[in-house]
Design a protein around this nucleic acid. Structure first.
Lengths: 290, 290
DNA sequence: GTTCCGCATGAATCGATAG
DNA sequence: ACTATCGATTCATGCGGAA
């Protein structure tokens, strides 16, 4: 059970008084989460290795065992989350024997019994869905991002994710020339331009609970569960600079990359040594916005 | 309990031998569904008046009572559906006391116990979500279209809903005005251009399980739950000409309009007299494709 | 015939107020 | 305390009218 200190705190911020942050922990989160203090995390973002989804490289959990396996972890997550914090669970039920398996909705009900509030379910529309052809279904192009909270009142910074008026994901911006429009589209798509001031003067609106994002493609060294744009969006929405983001199944480190890019502190847990290597590399290369 | 014969069968098809079809039934579906024979329906498409959503004009069901209220209806629907048929349930859980209510996922589990297969969950992305601003959530821009079947093998005609290849929204319509582009985008995305011949010569691909459609607004005489494009899509996908489409909560008749436009037979049930009037009018005005 | 602009209209939700 | 009602908030769509 290693504990790896990856990066020193950025010098532009007060020095960390607690070395538990900005670290990757190598081990099972069932064992590691109990070592964290109560209410030390502002946001949990994760995509669990559910239902054999990462079977080859991770050793996934069988669909029927998902709920029983995850509930004790969810209890720990509830403990380490601040009362005003949020938990974003990116998940999608697998097809088992021709049917959608029920473990996700059973998990929602079980976590609700556990005391979690099922505040919202965001919808991640994957614009580049995995290819394939089946006789009984089409390509699956969406996943759930389930938003659990501990309280009805929680931290949310909606202004941080405002978008230009119009359907920005579809590429429509009013009153701009075609050239301007395309440039601005690409800037918006690439992600969340560092400066919202880029959009000053344009009409900004709040987004909806549907996120249009592509999945990550073409990465040779790792298979990321989600594109960095996904944790970026939720981290901006539910935390401020210096807040703490936790991913108990961090895999190739995407959540930590997003947290570092946004100047948040982070905690990552991963049990696979091979993922730890890749995550270290990616987090090291992640750049802070200038 | 009226029974209204609306339209004679179209002359280009064999005359109806069973006058039970192409009719609006006025009454509660709890009472009317048992009068239908077994296995007479190819597709059920409906959006129930769940959870007070039509309270003012319909008298909705309280969220806590939804499952118990719907289960006997679901049992009847299972009986009247052909073994190879499909049931599309358009529904979304309301926010109750700051949380998403659990009646939808409880219903899925209960219907699964009842023998339904939870084959798929299509995602309707509502491009024009209802406006609003709240401190704890964004505008809700998606609904579930839950696909239940009786068997693992069922009728599905995927070719009927193929769409032109390529991301039509990006770059291909540079030289058109914004208005033209918007119109053409919506036509392409919805995939129901009146004339598929518009797309002849272009490469066609299968869609995903995410549907991009607007809700119907601006209609003076009725407030349609879903745009006609929604039942059109599922009717094309799961039925052939002459097949039977059932909507047990047909409201303003949208499902029947779609079925008539596609040359399918239909059965509509509605308990509100005011909706019957509107539906009659809309169905009468619906035109068959030339 | 087109294109553009203005305006009414929603299967909503929250928070405050009133009973 | 607990429930019912009402105002405020917000934006894509499609229509009509005008250029």
């Amino acid at each position: 059970m290693e504990q790896l200190l990856l990066m020193p705190p950025r010098t532009t911020e007060p020095p960390e008084t607690d070395s538990a942050f900005n670290r990757l922990y190598h081990g099972n989160c069932e064992a590691l989460l109990p070592t964290l203090p109560d209410a030390c995390v502002d946001l949990i973002v994760t995509s669990p290795p559910y239902a054999d989804q990462r079977k080859n490289s991770y050793g996934g959990i069988a669909p029927d065992d998902c709920v029983a396996w995850f509930l004790p972890i969810a209890a720990q997550l509830q403990r380490v989350l601040k009362p005003t914090g949020s938990f974003i669970l990116n998940i999608k039920e697998r097809v088992v024997n021709g049917e959608r398996h029920t473990y996700v909705i059973e998990l929602i009900l079980a976590m609700w019994q556990q005391g979690w509030l099922w505040t919202e379910e965001y919808n991640w529309h994957k614009k580049n869905a995995y290819p394939g052809k089946w006789s009984n279904r089409f390509r699956d192009a969406w996943e759930r991002c389930i938003h659990f909270t501990r309280q009805r009142k929680f931290a949310m910074y909606q202004e941080a994710v405002m978008v230009p008026v119009g359907d920005w994901a579809e590429g429509r911006l009013r009153n701009l020339s075609e050239t301007d429009r395309r440039r601005d589209e690409s800037r918006a798509k690439s992600g969340f331009g560092k400066n919202v001031s880029n959009w000053v003067g344009r009409e900004m609106v709040y987004p909806t609970n549907v996120l249009h994002m592509a999945t990550e493609t073409g990465n040779r060294n790792h298979s990321a569960a989600f594109h960095v744009a996904l944790p970026l969006w939720f981290i901006k929405l539910f935390t401020q600079e210096g807040d703490v983001v936790l991913d108990p199944f961090i895999g190739s480190g995407t959540t930590a990359v997003a947290a570092k890019q946004l100047g948040r502190r982070w905690i990552g847990i991963e049990k696979e040594a091979s993922y730890i290597q890749i995550a270290q590399q990616r987090i090291r290369e992640a750049v802070l916005p200038t």
